[in-house]
Amino acid sequence: MTTTAITAIIVILYLIGAPILGGILAGLDRIITARMQGRYGPPVWQPFYDVLKLMSKEKAAVNKTQNFYVFCFLLFMIFTGAVFFAGGDLLLVLFALTLASIFLVLGAFSSNSPYSFIGAERELIQTMAYEPMVLITAAGMYLATKSFFVADIAAFSTPLIYYLPGIFIGFVYILTIKFRKSPFDLSTSHHAHQELVKGLTTEFSGPTLAMIEIAHWYENIFLLGIVYLFFAFNPLLGVIVALLTYFLEILIDNSNARVTWQLTMKSAWIVAATLGMANLIIVFFKLSV
């Protein structure tokens, strides 16, 4: 079999598998969260029920462009993951990821609701908060492996974590923002228990909201994929670490209050500047000497 064919199979597997895996992860998330809170929790298939229900609800959009933006959000999120799992250019992946989230923000801005408006503003702030660290991650991976291609990074013999421990911690830190977990669930939160109701997603409803949910599943799997990259030298270890990271995020979610956007911004940049940059500089000198 040619490499192209293998790539094609992986991409197709991703397209079908990611929402299923992502949904199951979301279901496990809800069960673990419930257990941590002393509750019994929903069945593991609950996220699927939610999405299927949303599909069967009445279609109501605030305006026509809104649906287009959300569709683009989903499309680019899938594209991001597809390029990533096809072993493509990491920079392209990250730019597509940013583009996807910008579409979501545009969708939120397109309505007149003040909740969704402020939610969108906060989403932009969050994007600003996590973006430097994401770029540092890509740069770090490049410095260590001398390639931006995910396939090369994954095939790199030395464990990446050996070179990039600081970047890994920094990435896990901003992962909390990306997963929309407390303490950084500023723009929208799981149960809409905040001052902005549902924030960013307030104005999306029915099938549109279902699309956003599915996009989040794709996104989560892709993000765990990056965590996997740090431990790609041993696939089993990589998967275990990715799952452990997800568990850690749930734990953090359940033992933190939501912080203000100022602290989100400050702390994310401090983490990026100290852990990320220091790690980058050390790797640069270590490898160039």
Partner: peptide
């Protein structure tokens, strides 16, 4: 964190 991890191993209060 201690409390929530402890609760995970316990039966739910439900």
């Amino acid at each position: 964190a201690g409390t929530v991890t402890k609760r995970m191993g316990m039966k739910s209060a439900c």
